[in-house]
């Protein structure tokens, strides 16, 4: 495996290897001096065609902790504004001797396209509504860390499935690791032929949450309402908002995840977001784990060893 573009195309052994590596690397984050020389002399370039301070910062942290150079291309200031094609931009970055490209792009498949144009490893940091594999990995990592094992878990992904790259990466990653996935959301936010995915589909939150071990709450983009996909945030919150009350049908030790940033009071209540009232919320641990997972990805792609070599 030369790139990390999707979890759909990542084998179980590669996922397991990445999660195990992240577990080992996470220890570095707890040290007083968070620096190891592992990737000294390597340069990671992040190229974000969509704003995302948290994901970009997470990659930068991961690279810097391992002593790699982290160079950020702010797209608005770059040649993109001059009309340069994506192909020319990424070839230029390669010619500048970048060792790895981390790309976020609004177009689904953009990471695949870039990978076809360059020789260096490409990490997909989110492409359109397609995949966000490092988010998927950090969700798997967080669940495994808290629950011990992914195999056999019942995981509900709740919200705007249709437009969510987080949902797609979770679906493939979780099912590959033996978890059962439920998708819960209003019909207008479920993608076409959703029942052909390896999931169970619910449009009723109560039955969707019944007996689940984990709830992954998706961020609701408020523009969905303007596009006529939802009547109001108020109704959405009543029907699909995750609250202490709606979690009552889940297992007592249910774990709540959210990729952030959260719309408190819309898709997730204050209490659940903060892990109050006995709810196990892992939102902040997800952020920390994100750094560990991205360290693992950069290490395996830039460290020279490649992955487990089974691909």
């Amino acid at each position: 495996m030369r790139h990390l573009l999707t979890l759909r195309e990542t084998s179980e052994s590669d996922i397991r290897f990445l999660l195990d590596t992240a577990t080992a690397l996470k220890e570095i984050l707890q040290r007083p001096v968070k620096k190891v020389p592992t990737l000294r002399g390597r340069a990671m370039v992040t190229c974000f065609y969509e704003n995302s301070t948290r994901t970009r910062t997470s990659f930068e942290m991961a690279a810097k902790i391992m002593s790699a150079e982290a160079i950020n291309i702010a797209v608005a200031q770059s040649s993109v504004a001059k009309g340069e094609s994506l192909k020319d931009t990424v070839r230029t970055l390669q010619a500048l001797q970048a060792d790895c490209l981390v790309v976020r792009h609004p177009s689904s498949g953009a990471a695949h396209f870039i990978a076809s144009q360059v020789r260096i490893p490409v990490v997909n940091a989110g492409d359109g509504r397609h995949e966000h594999p490092t988010q998927g990995l950090l969700d798997l990592f967080t669940i495994r860390q808290i629950k011990g094992e992914l195999q056999g878990l019942e995981v509900a992904i709740v919200g705007d499935i249709a437009h969510s790259r987080v949902a797609r990466s979770n679906i493939w990653g979780l099912t590959r690791m033996g978890a059962r996935v439920r998708l819960v959301g209003p019909r207008t936010l479920l993608p076409a032929d959703v029942d052909r995915l390896p999931v169970q589909v619910y449009t009723d939150l109560r039955s969707g949450l019944e007996g689940v071990d984990v709830v992954n709450v998706l961020r609701l983009q408020t523009e969905r309402m303007e596009k006529g996909l939802l009547p109001s945030l108020r109704e959405y919150s009543r029907l699909f908002g995750i609250s202490v009350q709606s979690l009552r049908v889940a297992r007592p030790d249910v774990l709540v995840l959210h990729p952030g940033p959260m719309n408190r009071g819309v898709e997730i209540s204050d209490e659940v977001a903060d892990g109050a009232c006995g709810v196990r919320s892992a939102v902040e641990e997800q952020v920390t784990n994100g750094v560990a997972v991205r360290m693992a990805v950069l290490y395996l792609l830039m460290g020279g060893g490649g992955m487990s070599g089974q691909d």
């Binding site: 759909r8 689904s108 498949g109 492409d127 359109g128 509504r129 397609h130 995949e131 790259r165 797609r168 993608p191 076409a192 032929d193 959703v194 052909r196 995915l197």
Partner: peptide, 15 residues
């Protein structure tokens, strides 16, 4: 085309 392939690819569909 809107359908399973577009759903997996994350590409907006044309029904």
């Amino acid at each position: 085309n809107e359908g399973y392939t577009a759903t997996v690819m994350g590409v907006p569909g044309m029904p």
